[in-house]
Amino acid sequence: MKSHLATILDRLLKLVEENNAKATYNFEREGEVQLTVSFDPEAQAFSVKYPKQKQPVEFDSIDLVAIEAYELVFDEE
């Protein structure tokens, strides 16, 4: 059985491998987008956009992006 966190990391690594700043991935919960992630190869940083915020947040760590995605998609509150 593959963990949810490993699946998220796999998806983020694919964004890095694509080497395309315009490529994005939506992480959804029950059909609703929780965050949209892209990777800027020049800056070596992830850009995370939340549906209710206009400005994206920059992360330079794949681990932090994965944890953020996991918490928004899989954590039960």
Results as ranks from 00 to 15, higher is better:
1 M>Q: 01
25 Y>A: 05
25 Y>R: 02
76 E>K: 03
73 V>C: 11
35 L>A: 10
61 S>Y: 01
31 G>T: 08
38 S>G: 08
40 D>I: 06
55 Q>F: 10
40 D>P: 08
48 V>R: 08
56 P>E: 12
39 F>H: 15
11 R>K: 14
60 D>T: 12
16 V>L: 14
76 E>Q: 10
12 L>E: 06
56 P>G: 10
12 L>H: 13
76 E>L: 09
29 R>W: 00
42 E>T: 12
16 V>H: 10
23 A>N: 05
39 F>C: 14
10 D>N: 04
28 E>L: 05
49 K>N: 08
46 F>C: 09
45 A>H: 03
51 P>A: 14
53 Q>S: 07
26 N>F: 03
22 K>W: 04
3 S>C: 03
18 E>L: 15
72 L>E: 09
15 L>W: 10
9 L>H: 07
69 A>D: 02
21 A>S: 13
71 E>H: 04
62 I>P: 02
66 A>Y: 09
52 K>G: 00
48 V>T: 12
67 I>S: 04
12 L>Q: 10
32 E>W: 05
18 E>D: 15
47 S>L: 11
67 I>A: 11
13 L>W: 02
31 G>E: 05
2 K>W: 06
2 K>Q: 10
50 Y>H: 01
37 V>C: 04
27 F>V: 02
44 Q>V: 00
69 A>L: 02
33 V>S: 10
76 E>T: 12
25 Y>H: 12
73 V>K: 06
15 L>F: 11
27 F>A: 09
62 I>G: 04
46 F>D: 11
51 P>F: 04
40 D>G: 11
70 Y>N: 03
29 R>H: 06
24 T>A: 13
41 P>V: 03
44 Q>S: 05
66 A>T: 08
3 S>Y: 07
12 L>W: 10
53 Q>E: 13
38 S>M: 01
36 T>D: 04
5 L>A: 04
19 N>R: 13
16 V>G: 13
45 A>I: 02
64 L>A: 14
64 L>D: 13
77 E>S: 10
73 V>Y: 03
63 D>F: 12
11 R>W: 01
72 L>N: 07
66 A>G: 15
66 A>Q: 09
68 E>W: 00
19 N>F: 06
9 L>C: 05
74 F>L: 03
61 S>R: 07
49 K>H: 12
16 V>M: 15
32 E>N: 11
6 A>D: 15
64 L>P: 00
61 S>T: 05
6 A>T: 07
62 I>V: 14
52 K>E: 13
50 Y>E: 06
16 V>Y: 14
39 F>P: 09
32 E>S: 12
71 E>L: 07
68 E>C: 08
64 L>N: 12
41 P>D: 03
2 K>G: 02
46 F>Q: 14
30 E>M: 09
65 V>F: 08
76 E>N: 07
34 Q>W: 00
24 T>R: 13
74 F>G: 00
53 Q>K: 13
12 L>S: 14
65 V>N: 12
66 A>N: 05
23 A>Y: 01
56 P>H: 11
57 V>D: 02
2 K>H: 07
22 K>F: 11
73 V>Q: 03
20 N>I: 04
10 D>T: 03
71 E>K: 09
37 V>A: 11
8 I>L: 08
51 P>H: 12
31 G>H: 04
